[in-house]
């Protein structure tokens, strides 16, 4: 029997027709980053923070968008990565790169210890448990003053760099953050198309059906959680080295709310979603700054309109059309 399929010429044609639409968010994002690189200064700083959030939200997307689990506690892992890297570089004079790696490893180990019992919970219970993880980490950052300096925070954190080479300029930081963000998105795309990524998606669609196919649901959930924690820790470590300062507020609940907003506005479950969401939500307050006292009102209205008219996020407008053929 012959398998019904398209010829290679037909496939190439389909791909070419779909490409301009799929490439649009990437092209616009590249243009925004390129513009920030040219003008530098404040715009470059805003986009640099947005790129740090691209890493954070990409990790959140793996756990929430692909595996369809809930976590309000990813800020805890960003905090662990950030504080570990800050303490190791300022107190123990570690070079930046090993300190960042140590921060990520620490966050993953803590995520493993916490995740093993916590991920037995589902739905709202899992959400509450992860929220508690974030709150506990925040309290530790406040109270463990001998290590974290409490509310005063840690200053003098060295900038990103390798060995004696430090990236001090805003353009230099923007360039390195662009590479890291792109790498994070690329890794997420590779995970999504891998065997493990398909297991994440299966788990997200139906736990029982996934179990019936022989997918180890508990292990898959844990791997998604650890991967998201690693992304969050990397984002936290990048943040402290870009700003040069860390305090508990940096990794507070505000970070979770911002991450969620970026994920849902950009498009949960899509690869481009975190990039679109992080750039848009970071730029929106700057665009609306002219409205002065009404800035928050316009910001809130814009978010509500976006979620009404793009409930699957902006990335949904750029998805491949042939994936959603009509039923017959």
């Amino acid at each position: 029997m012959t398998l019904p399929n398209t010829t290679s010429t037909e496939r190439a044609g389909l791909l070419l027709r779909a490409w301009p639409l799929q490439l649009l968010p990437w092209a616009v994002s590249a243009a925004i980053v390129g513009y920030a690189f040219i003008v530098g200064g404040y715009v470059a700083t805003v986009i640099a923070f947005a790129l740090v959030y691209v890493v954070f939200v990409t990790g959140l997307n793996l756990f929430m968008g692909f595996a369809n689990q809930v976590s309000f506690g990813q800020n805890a892992f960003a905090g662990l990565g950030g504080y570990a890297s800050a303490i190791l570089t300022t107190t123990y004079n570690w070079p930046v790169l090993p300190a960042m790696i140590a921060g990520i490893v620490l966050a993953v180990v803590i995520a493993l210890i916490i995740g093993y019992p916590t991920l037995r919970l589902k739905g709202h219970y899992l959400a509450m448990a992860t929220l508690a993880i974030g709150l506990i980490t925040y309290e530790i950052a406040v109270e463990w003053q001998s290590m974290t300096q409490g509310y005063l925070g840690i200053s003098g954190i060295p900038p990103l760099g390798i060995g004696s080479y430090e990236i001090i300029s805003d353009r230099g930081q923007l360039a390195i953050l662009s590479i890291v963000a792109l790498l994070a998105v690329f890794i997420a795309a590779r995970i999504k198309s891998s065997r493990m990524g398909r297991a994440f998606l299966a788990l997200g669609a139906s736990e029982n059906a996934a179990l019936a196919l022989g997918i180890n649901v508990s292990r898959t959930k844990l791997i998604a959680f650890l991967t998201a924690a690693a992304f969050a820790a990397l984002a936290g470590a990048l943040f402290v080295h870009v700003v040069g300062y860390v305090s508990p507020e940096v990794f507070g609940l505000h970070m979770v709310i911002l991450g969620f907003t970026m994920l849902y506005v950009g498009g949960i479950g899509s690869i481009a979603g975190p990039l679109i969401g992080a750039l848009l939500i970071s730029l929106l307050p700057e665009v609306l700054r002219g409205f002065k006292d009404y800035q928050d009102l316009f910001y809130g209205t814009a978010l509500i309109l976006l979620l009404i008219y793009a409930p699957r996020g902006l990335a949904a407008f750029f998805e491949r059309r042939e994936r959603t053929g009509s039923a017959s």
Binding site: L201, A202, A205, S206, A209, A212, G269
Partner: peptide, 11 residues
């Protein structure tokens, strides 16, 4: 093959 089919709709 579970009741309600258990297919992965978005995939």
């Amino acid at each position: 093959v579970p009741e309600g089919r258990g297919i992965f709709g978005p995939m």
